[in-house]
Amino acid sequence: DEEIEKWIETLLKRNISLRVNGKDLEIGSEEFKEWVEKFIKEV
């Protein structure tokens, strides 16, 4: 979905790490990609 890709790009540009389930996810890491894929499937 384009919306999500733009959102991810924005996050990448800002180099933010997300806190997911109490863990810091490094943007661009494998864990982050897995989380994004799960997130996309749920939406």
Rank of each mutant, 00 (worst) to 15 (best):
residue 1 D to F: 14
residue 1 D to Y: 14
residue 1 D to T: 13
residue 2 E to M: 12
residue 2 E to D: 13
residue 3 E to N: 08
residue 3 E to F: 14
residue 3 E to D: 13
residue 3 E to G: 08
residue 3 E to T: 11
residue 3 E to R: 12
residue 4 I to K: 04
residue 4 I to R: 03
residue 4 I to T: 03
residue 5 E to I: 14
residue 5 E to M: 14
residue 5 E to T: 08
residue 5 E to S: 06
residue 5 E to C: 15
residue 5 E to H: 12
residue 5 E to V: 13
residue 6 K to Y: 09
residue 6 K to R: 12
residue 6 K to P: 02
residue 7 W to T: 01
residue 8 I to R: 00
residue 8 I to S: 00
residue 8 I to K: 01
residue 9 E to I: 04
residue 9 E to K: 03
residue 9 E to R: 00
residue 9 E to P: 00
residue 9 E to W: 02
residue 10 T to V: 08
residue 10 T to G: 12
residue 10 T to D: 15
residue 10 T to A: 15
residue 10 T to L: 10
residue 11 L to A: 04
residue 11 L to C: 14
residue 11 L to D: 01
residue 11 L to S: 00
residue 12 L to Q: 07
residue 12 L to N: 05
residue 12 L to G: 05
residue 13 K to G: 13
residue 13 K to C: 13
residue 14 R to D: 14
residue 14 R to M: 15
residue 14 R to N: 15
residue 15 N to T: 09
residue 15 N to H: 11
residue 16 I to C: 15
residue 17 S to C: 11
residue 17 S to A: 09
residue 17 S to F: 02
residue 17 S to H: 11
residue 18 L to M: 07
residue 18 L to S: 01
residue 18 L to K: 01
residue 19 R to N: 07
residue 19 R to D: 03
residue 19 R to A: 08
residue 20 V to L: 08
residue 20 V to Q: 04
residue 20 V to M: 06
residue 21 N to S: 06
residue 21 N to D: 08
residue 21 N to L: 10
residue 21 N to Q: 10
residue 21 N to F: 06
residue 21 N to W: 01
residue 22 G to D: 05
residue 22 G to H: 03
residue 22 G to Y: 07
residue 22 G to E: 06
residue 22 G to V: 04
residue 22 G to P: 02
residue 22 G to I: 12
residue 23 K to L: 08
residue 23 K to G: 03
residue 23 K to A: 08
residue 23 K to R: 11
residue 23 K to Y: 10
residue 23 K to C: 12
residue 23 K to W: 07
residue 24 D to V: 15
residue 24 D to G: 05
residue 25 L to C: 14
residue 25 L to V: 09
residue 26 E to K: 12
residue 26 E to I: 12
residue 26 E to H: 09
residue 27 I to Y: 08
residue 27 I to P: 13
residue 27 I to Q: 04
residue 27 I to K: 05
residue 28 G to W: 11
residue 28 G to M: 10
residue 28 G to D: 06
residue 28 G to Y: 07
residue 28 G to R: 05
residue 29 S to A: 05
residue 29 S to V: 06
residue 29 S to Q: 04
residue 30 E to K: 11
residue 30 E to F: 09
residue 30 E to C: 04
residue 31 E to S: 08
residue 31 E to G: 08
residue 31 E to P: 04
residue 31 E to A: 11
residue 31 E to K: 14
residue 31 E to R: 05
residue 31 E to T: 04
residue 31 E to W: 07
residue 32 F to L: 07
residue 32 F to E: 00
residue 32 F to W: 09
residue 32 F to M: 03
residue 32 F to A: 02
residue 32 F to T: 01
residue 33 K to D: 05
residue 33 K to I: 11
residue 33 K to N: 11
residue 33 K to T: 05
residue 33 K to Y: 15
residue 33 K to F: 14
residue 34 E to F: 09
residue 34 E to G: 07
residue 34 E to H: 12
residue 34 E to W: 08
residue 34 E to Q: 10
residue 34 E to D: 12
residue 35 W to E: 01
residue 35 W to L: 08
residue 35 W to P: 00
residue 36 V to I: 14
residue 36 V to M: 10
residue 36 V to F: 13
residue 36 V to E: 01
residue 36 V to S: 00
residue 36 V to N: 00
residue 36 V to H: 01
residue 36 V to A: 06
residue 37 E to W: 05
residue 37 E to F: 04
residue 37 E to Y: 06
residue 37 E to I: 08
residue 37 E to Q: 08
residue 38 K to M: 09
residue 38 K to N: 10
residue 39 F to A: 05
residue 39 F to S: 02
residue 39 F to R: 03
residue 40 I to M: 07
residue 41 K to F: 04
residue 41 K to Y: 04
residue 42 E to W: 14
residue 43 V to P: 03
residue 43 V to M: 14
residue 43 V to E: 05
